[in-house]
C-alpha cells in the first residue's frame, strides 16, 4: 500500500539518521570495549602455554582453579568484605549529609554545598590515597601529631597498613559518589508528604522512618552500586595503603596477567570479578524494583 510504504520510508530514514549519528561512538565502543571484553572471555577458557602464550585448547580448568584455589578465594573474599565494608561506611556516613543538604540547607545554598562536597573528589586520586598513608602511617601525621602533643608516647599501630586503613581511605575517596544519588532521591520527595505524615499523628522521627527513608531508598541503592563497583576493583589503595601485603582482585589480575604472564588464568579472574559485580548489582537492582513497586 502506498500509505504504509511512505510511512515506512519516513520511519526508516529516522532510524537510519539515528544509527548514522550514533555509529562513530558505537563503533569505538565495539572495537575498544566489546571486542577486548570478548577476547578476555575467550582467553579465560583457553590454556596457558607459558611465557605469555595462549594455547588454543578449550578448558574450564582456569575457572576450577580460580574458584577452588585457596589463595584466589581468600583474595576475592577479602575484596568482597573490604568493598562491602567501604560501601556500608560510605553510605551510612553519606545519608545524613545528603539529608542535611536536601532538608536543612536553603535552596540558594544547595549548589554551593554540593560543590564543596565534590571538590575533594576531583583532586588527584593517587595523591589522596597516598595522603592517607601519610596520615595513618607508623610515623605518620596522626601518630606524630598525637606524640608531639603528648597525648600518646608510643605510635599507635592499630591504624596503619591494615584492612581498616583501606576501608577508611576508600570511604573517603567515594564519599561524593554516595551523597549525590541519595541527595537527588531526597530532593524528589514531595514535602507535603512529610506534613501529611505528621498530620496523621506520627512524630518527626517516625515520619522519617515511615515516609522519608522508604522514598529515598532508590537513591540509597544507587549509591551502594556506585560505591561498590569501583571499590571492589580498586588497585591503588591496596598497593599504597596495604603496602602490597593485602592484595585485592585488581592486584591479583595484574600479577597474573603481567608479572606471571598467565593470561588465561588472569582472564578467568577478570571474568569472575565481573560476575561478582554483576551478581551484586542484580541483587540490588531487584531490591530497588521491590521498593519501586512498594511505592505504587
Amino acid at each position: 500500500m502506498e500509505n504504509t510504504s511512505l510511512f515506512g520510508r519516513i520511519r526508516q530514514s529516522e532510524a537510519a539518521s539515528g544509527l548514522l549519528l550514533v555509529s562513530p561512538t558505537a563503533i569505538y565502543a565495539i572495537l575498544l570495549l566489546f571486542a577486548p571484553l570478548a577476547t578476555v572471555l575467550v582467553y579465560s577458557v583457553m590454556t596457558d602455554a607459558g611465557a605469555g602464550k595462549i594455547e588454543w585448547v578449550f578448558t574450564l580448568q582456569n575457572y576450577v582453579e580460580v574458584w577452588t584455589g585457596k589463595v584466589y578465594r581468600a583474595i576475592m573474599f577479602r575484596s568482597l568484605v573490604v568493598s562491602m565494608a567501604v560501601t556500608l561506611c560510605t553510605v551510612l556516613l553519606a545519608y545524613p549529609i545528603a539529608y542535611f543538604v536536601s532538608f536543612h540547607v536553603a535552596a540558594s545554598k544547595k549548589s554551593l554545598w554540593l560543590f564543596l562536597i565534590t571538590i575533594p573528589f576531583w583532586t588527584s586520586y593517587v595523591i589522596r590515597v597516598f595522603l592517607w598513608k601519610v596520615i595513618l602511617g607508623y610515623n605518620g601525621v596522626i601518630n606524630s601529631g598525637l606524640m608531639s602533643l603528648g597525648i600518646i608516647s608510643e605510635p599507635l599501630q592499630a591504624i596503619n597498613y591494615n584492612a581498616g586503613a583501606m576501608v577508611m581511605t576508600l570511604a573517603h575517596a567515594y564519599a561524593p559518589f554516595a551523597i549525590l544519588p541519595i541527595f537527588v532521591a531526597l530532593e524528589k520527595i514531595d514535602r507535603s508528604l512529610l506534613e501529611a505524615g505528621q498530620d496523621l499523628g506520627e512524630t518527626k522521627l517516625m515520619t522519617f522512618w515511615r515516609v522519608t527513608l522508604p522514598l529515598s531508598m532508590t537513591g540509597v541503592i544507587a549509591a551502594v552500586l556506585i560505591v561498590f563497583i569501583p571499590t571492589i576493583g580498586d588497585y591503588v589503595t591496596p598497593d599504597l595503603i596495604g603496602g602490597g601485603k593485602i592484595p585485592m582482585i585488581a592486584n591479583m589480575i595484574e600479577v597474573k596477567m603481567l608479572k606471571q604472564n598467565e593470561k588465561a588464568i588472569g582472564s578467568a579472574i577478570a571474568v569472575t570479578a565481573m560476575l561478582i559485580v554483576a551478581l551484586v548489582s542484580i541483587v540490588f537492582l531487584i531490591l530497588n524494583r521491590r521498593f519501586l513497586k512498594g511505592q505504587k
Binding site: 570495549l33 577486548p36 571484553l37 577476547t39 578476555v40 552500586l225 563497583i229 569501583p230 571492589i232 576493583g233 580498586d234 588497585y235 582482585i249 585488581a250 589480575i253 595484574e254 596477567m257 588472569g266 577478570a270 570479578a273 565481573m274 559485580v277 548489582s281
Partner: peptide
Amino acid sequence: VLPEMIVAMS
C-alpha cells in the same frame, strides 16, 4: 559500571 582494572587489562 566496570572496574577500571578490567577495562585496562582487556
